[in-house]
Design a protein around this nucleic acid. Structure first.
Lengths: 340, 340
DNA sequence: TTGTAGGCGTTATCAG
DNA sequence: CTGATAACGCCTACAA
């Protein structure tokens, strides 16, 4: 951006040494400087619209005051609220957020991770972790500050903030049972993610708790949390002759895919078949029909993760913790008693 | 991130001087170095997972290899596609994107602008400009590299990439006229933005071109491109006793607000009243009813803006240009002939 | 082809 | 309270 004024110029204008100017402008050290000179320096800084050069400062202090955020894809409406939560908390603390889209591509993820390292980010918020993600396990072990959001890594003590998957699914299944459903299917998510796996387990357990036996044909797994994959998996189930009266989708994107297939097969929702999603992502309430789903407080997840990261900056030896935020069942119009 | 290896360490491991290591690792200068030593250096770099410190490099080269992006709010589904377009092009050129949300708050915008300046961004992509936006006019004049997306600034030669608002609205109005509508309203956007103003003008002109006289009561302006404001403005129009048979909304968010009010007033869309939005933002096709709207290629707008910025980095004296990308009318189920 | 010296803008550490 | 000096990690003349 052309030529930013430097501290030296501010100092000259104020008639003091660079060091003094530095001290005057730095809240932490400004108490050591004469109020009068302080005012002069601040005036000069204001007049020149001085902004300290973050790169120079970072080089000296070995802190970039920036945090990297790894997400699969910003255009998936699930993530912007999380990112906003992160940004709002971080910005208030003076940190800048660097967002990187991995597109679920491991190579890309490594590359982006390295770019972020090159930029000397002080820490990372990661929404793309897989259950056995060597990249983050190693980095965490090596001392990189990482907080996981949404998904966890198996057998690892990387701190994390997630929604209550287990309880969310339990409520969804319970709700369908209460409506009278007995053939409840699950279109699961990818099993190499903690969310995909955890929600499937929760579904199994919920049926078990209700004393219902599970029909393995009513469980299919999507290979990604996408509409297309949700549709593919649902089609596979239906094509195998398994027609449930209700479906619990592993997330809202997958539920969208279910809905697409219901349309193809002339299955009206909720008259012929009920559907529950997961996440309550933006705009899912305006679908036809408005989707019943499990709400997870995404903004708070992001905000909490950022706070956790900041805490760890302050005290690097803080014990690892994992926060689970409560889920809520949001009933709209995609669920109804089974038709006979 | 703990202690990144430095160039010095790489050099030591390879048994060469720092300078040589620097040259070996830098594509531009690597031709000056002995192939054998080059291999040694590269091996050492790989083993240490060396990443050049972007801050140190930036300090020396006076370029941060980063670009700031100013948007109102990431959770508005209009923006993620634009941001993705920007990021994809920029990342391919080795640039990092810094996203900042202004929330339409001028003070916040100034603050974020300064933060970005502090980070020494090499340029800016701005989606938040107002028609008379002193901040960007001044910055542009002072030599800051800026490209505007979506919105323009009046009487200014800041380069920009926008969708074809005029043609888009013209097609929408034409379509409604062709369906037989004669009482066509416009819920306009904020008039201090080029999009809000431009679309209103286009609406007027389109009526005029069709030889229809404009009923001033059928034009209301929202104070923001939001669902709430769209609803407020629509309510005001209806409360004034003006009931159109069709509405052209200044964008999809406003259209959402229109739909809300139609619901309140028991006006069925499209049976009783037709509606056309603008932007074709994600998920607007899954509404009840699926919204007819004007599609603007947002990803391409972002990508094109990034390319323009890169061009200007390469040649700072490039003449300013403004690119307009074509709009398309997307007909879905929110428009129908007027009922009698 | 490789090494030496200096400096980018800032702050930490001394000394005055 | 203020000033001098060095250093952060990298790059770029210039010299060898």
């Amino acid at each position: 951006m052309t030529n930013s004024p430097t501290l030296k110029e501010v100092a000259q204008r104020a008639g003091v040494h660079v060091t003094t100017a530095s001290r005057a402008l730095n809240p932490a050290t400004s108490s050591l400087v004469n109020p009068a000179t302080m005012r002069r320096v601040q005036a000069a800084a204001r007049e020149l619209r001085y902004q300290p050069n973050a790169m120079a400062r970072g080089l000296k202090t070995a802190r970039s005051m920036s945090v990297g955020v790894l997400i699969p894809d910003l255009t998936n409406p699930l993530f912007p609220p999380i990112v906003r939560g992160i940004e709002d908390v971080l910005a208030a603390a003076g940190y800048t957020t660097l967002i990187a889209n991995t597109d679920n591509d491991p190579d890309r993820q490594v590359k982006l991770f390295d770019t972020l390292r090159a930029r000397q980010v002080d820490g990372l918020v990661v929404a793309t972790a897989h259950r056995e993600d060597g990249l983050f396990i190693d980095a965490h072990r090596a001392g990189t500050r990482i907080v996981l959001v949404n998904r966890r890594v198996d057998h690892s003590d990387i701190p994390s903030v997630t929604g209550d998957d287990h309880d969310g699914i339990a409520m969804a299944v319970r709700h369908l049972i209460d409506l009278g459903h007995t053939r409840i299917a699950h279109v699961a998510g990818p099993q190499d993610t903690s969310t995909g796996r955890g929600r499937l387990r929760a579904y199994r357990q919920a049926l078990d708790d209700a004393g219902m036996t599970l029909d393995p044909g009513l469980v299919v797994a999507a290979k990604g949390f996408t509409e297309l994959e949700g549709a593919r998996a649902t089609r596979a189930m239906l094509d195998a002759g398994k027609v449930p009266t209700a479906v619990v989708a592993a997330n809202d994107m997958i539920a969208l895919g279910c809905l697409d297939v219901f349309g193809e097969r002339r299955l009206r929702c909720p008259q012929h078949i009920s559907l529950v999603g997961f996440n309550d992502m933006p705009f899912i309430d305006r679908l036809t029909p408005p989707l019943s789903t499990v709400r997870v407080p995404h903004y708070q997840i992001g905000a909490e993760a950022a706070r956790m990261l900041l805490d760890r900056f302050g005290n690097p030896d803080l014990p690892t913790k994992s926060i689970t935020l409560p889920a809520t069942l949001v009933l709209r119009e995609s669920t109804a008693p089974p038709s006979r």
